[in-house]
Computed example of a mutant assay.
Amino acid sequence: MTNEIPITDDRPPALVVTAMVDHVLGLAATWTAWDGRPSQVDQRIYTPHKAIRRAADHLIDHLAEVEARLAGHETIADRWHASAITTPADLAPFTEQDLEEAASRLLRLAQLWSDRLNALTPDQLDHSPGEGWSFRQLAFHLAGSVYYADAVGDLSLVHELPAS
């Protein structure tokens, strides 16, 4: 993930966010094959649970920012350690039930983002109130949350045996 100003294009911002969630859940569908060994990327550890947690937290944090700015309030700073820490819960096996919970959570967050972004005018998307990136830029920034899922990767081939 980066803090550089996000580059945007002509895609609808709501579609950018929902495509990110679809990508994360597409990879997560393979994570029940996870063998319990974390991935290390950029000196950080990633697991299926951590990837889901980070994607969801990112959606929540920036949605709170959008809503606060639209209401004319200061945003509450995120004081969490993000991906710098790995919790014991992050190391738990990733089950079908975990996948169902993740899908439920992420799809509902994607719907909230889609509803919010689709309700804004192009001017509101590009000239957003308050301090920070425009809401269009925030949506494109969220697309970078695929990073967490990509760090775990596609585990569908992990348990396949070599051809005889």
Rank of each mutant, 00 (worst) to 15 (best):
A64W: 06
H81S: 05
L59F: 10
S83H: 06
E65G: 11
K50E: 07
A89K: 09
A56V: 01
W80F: 12
T86K: 07
D42S: 13
A29N: 01
A68Q: 09
Q40T: 14
H58A: 15
D90S: 05
E74Y: 02
H23A: 12
A29W: 03
A77M: 04
A89I: 11
R37D: 12
G36T: 12
T47Y: 06
W80I: 06
A28E: 11
A55Y: 00
I76H: 11
E67F: 03
H58Q: 13
L27G: 12
Q40G: 01
H23M: 13
T32A: 15
L27Q: 15
R44D: 04
W31F: 01
A55P: 00
V66A: 06
A64G: 13
A82E: 05
A56N: 01
G26H: 00
S83Q: 09
A51F: 14
A82K: 07
A29H: 01
Q43E: 12
A77C: 02
D90L: 06
D78M: 10
H62G: 00
V24T: 00
F94I: 11
L25H: 04
D78Q: 11
E65F: 10
A28S: 10
D78C: 09
G72T: 06
H73G: 06
A92I: 04
P38S: 14
A82F: 08
I76E: 14
Q43T: 07
A68F: 08
I60H: 04
T86G: 04
H62I: 02
D90P: 01
W31L: 01
H81C: 00
I52H: 00
I52G: 00
T30P: 00
E67V: 10
R53I: 13
A89T: 15
T87Y: 09
E67Y: 03
T32H: 12
E74K: 03
A51N: 11
A64V: 05
G72R: 03
A64C: 04
D61S: 09
V66G: 03
I60S: 03
T75E: 14
W34A: 04
A33W: 03
A71F: 04
A64L: 08
V24E: 00
A82P: 00
K50A: 05
A56Q: 01
R53W: 10
D90Y: 04
D90T: 02
R54P: 00
S39R: 14
T87G: 00
G26E: 04
P48G: 12
G36P: 12
A64H: 11
D61A: 06
H49G: 07
I52P: 00
S83L: 02
L91F: 03
L59C: 06
V24M: 01
T86P: 02
V24W: 00
V66L: 13
H81W: 01
P48A: 07
A51Q: 11
F94L: 08
W31N: 02
S39A: 15
T75V: 15
A82C: 01
D61W: 06
R79C: 12
L91S: 03
I76T: 15
A64T: 07
D42G: 12
R37F: 10
A64F: 09
L25T: 09
I60K: 08
R37S: 13
D42H: 09
V41M: 13
D42T: 10
T32D: 07
A56H: 01
H23V: 08
R53F: 10
V24Y: 00
K50H: 04
A92W: 10
A89L: 14
K50N: 02
Q43N: 10
S39D: 07
A68I: 12
S83G: 14
